[in-house]
Write a protein that binds this DNA or RNA. Structure first.
Length: 273
DNA sequence: CGGTGGACCTGCTGGC
DNA sequence: TGCCAGCAGGTCCACC
């Protein structure tokens, strides 16, 4: 579900509610996520004060005192919402955090592909989830030179290269397709065939599309909601994703869908060559 | 090593 | 109406 723009939106939404708050009590209702949740999570979080909320790739980092970080990933179907304590529990609410504000943070994930773990600041970059992550697209070092160093030497399809978190951290299937539409390249194109100029456009467009999606508070295709459980709006601005059979917004073409490694790739055959 | 395909889950949709 | 196949925003691992 949540790719970089959705995770960024959630972090921005949570930050004012969480920063400076103290955790009073934690209930873990379901430990079976992607990995088993630390059985001591509740006690380790209790009485901790939250100092900051940050995003790294598609991970949400909740900074606590004494250099401790609560790392969360929302998988495909996860939500992290801030609600009134009286809000009725929903099916698949797995972790409930009571705050000293009298409100709650709830981790909800029907498919349980998400992840929760605790790490220290020193450990963070050495974790398997982080130690091989590529650059964030908003990192100043993410540019044509960086991207070309990957594209020019890979035979993979460019859609798959963009999904590789070791290359760019934060892109998922929706935005990979949308970015390629904007640069006029088919998702099936072999990476090494991109010219240096196309690669330059790809790097620049990656940032443009993600920025735009953040401005629209992400894409609510089905499950995604922001920190206040509200919909994003970028689904109204998608040019190819989930638009099979519909007319291209930029030319008379009709959007096609092909299966690429068990996941849909969408493109306009007329304006993507 | 690089690249592909399946597994992990639940829930929804569309076809019959 | 009901059933079942197929598909869904991510990641990881086995295998070629």
């Amino acid at each position: 579900m949540p790719e970089l723009p959705e995770v960024e939106t959630i972090c921005r939404g949570l930050r004012p509610h969480l920063a400076g708050r103290r955790i009073i009590e934690v209930q873990v209702l379901e430990r079976r996520l992607r990995h088993l949740v630390d059985e001591r999570l509740a006690e380790r979080l209790q009485w901790q004060k939250i100092t900051a909320v940050c995003r790294r790739s598609k991970y949400i980092l909740i900074y606590l005192q004494k250099g401790l970080i609560w790392v969360l990933h929302l998988g495909m179907s996860g939500k992290l919402i801030h609600v009134d304590a009286g809000t009725p529990n929903q099916k698949h609410d797995h972790i409930i955090v009571n705050l000293d504000s009298g409100r709650q943070l709830r981790y909800h994930d029907p498919r349980r592909f998400g992840l929760s773990l605790l790490a220290t600041e020193q450990e963070l970059e050495t974790l398997p989830q982080f130690n091989r992550l590529g650059l964030d697209p908003f990192d100043g070092k993410f540019d044509e030179v960086y991207l070309y160093s990957f594209t020019r030497k890979s035979a993979r399809r460019i859609r798959d290269l963009l999904l590789d978190q070791q290359v760019v951290a934060g892109i998922g299937n929706i935005y990979a397709n949308e970015i390629l539409k904007r640069v006029g390249v088919r998702p099936t194109a072999r990476s090494f065939r991109l010219t240096r100029e196309k690669t330059r456009q790809l790097a620049a467009t990656t940032r443009t599309v993600l920025e735009e999606a953040i401005r629209w508070c992400g894409t609510s295709f089905s499950d995604y909601r922001d920190a206040d459980d509200k919909f994003g709006e970028f689904q109204n601005h998608l040019r190819v994703y989930d638009r099979e059979g519909e007319k291209c917004r930029d030319c008379p073409g009709v959007i096609k869908r092909v299966a690429l490694g068990n996941r849909g790739a969408f493109y306009c055959p007329r304006c993507q060559r």
